[in-house]
């Protein structure tokens, strides 16, 4: 029974392994060059309007942006470097 069940899932697991290897090689080679060239404000306007309206920096205090940025990093698969720049921009533009 176990083997019968595995037959179906095997292809999926192999595909996932290939994706992970490809991703790893890709991130080793190119790093985050493109992102680093952009400013926090640019990244905010590009990244933070992909799923919902672009959030207004004045909505939250510095501490709240610290936490919410992490929430969005995970939800939107944003790289650590990019989210750090966005967070710094939001914290500098919120008037706190």
């Amino acid at each position: 029974m176990g083997n019968g069940i595995l037959k179906n899932g095997k292809k999926g697991l192999v595909a996932m392994a290939i994706i992970l290897i490809a991703f790893w090689l890709h991130s080793c080679k190119t790093g985050e060059k493109v992102a680093v060239e952009k400013s926090g404000a640019e990244l905010w306007s590009e990244q933070c309007s992909r799923c919902h309206n672009m959030p207004d920096p004045t909505t939250y205090s510095d501490d709240k942006w610290e936490t919410v940025s992490m929430h969005m990093k995970v939800r939107a698969n944003i790289s650590t470097k990019e989210i750090e720049l966005i967070k710094q921009f939001l914290q500098s533009a919120n008037g706190d």
Binding site: M16, I19, L20, F23, H26, S27, T30, E32, V34, A35, V74, A76, N77, I78, S79, E82
Partner: peptide, 12 residues
């Protein structure tokens, strides 16, 4: 497990 760059992202 998930990760993302400007051009590619995955979650497994």
């Amino acid at each position: 497990i998930r990760n993302g760059t400007t051009h590619f992202n995955y979650a497994v």
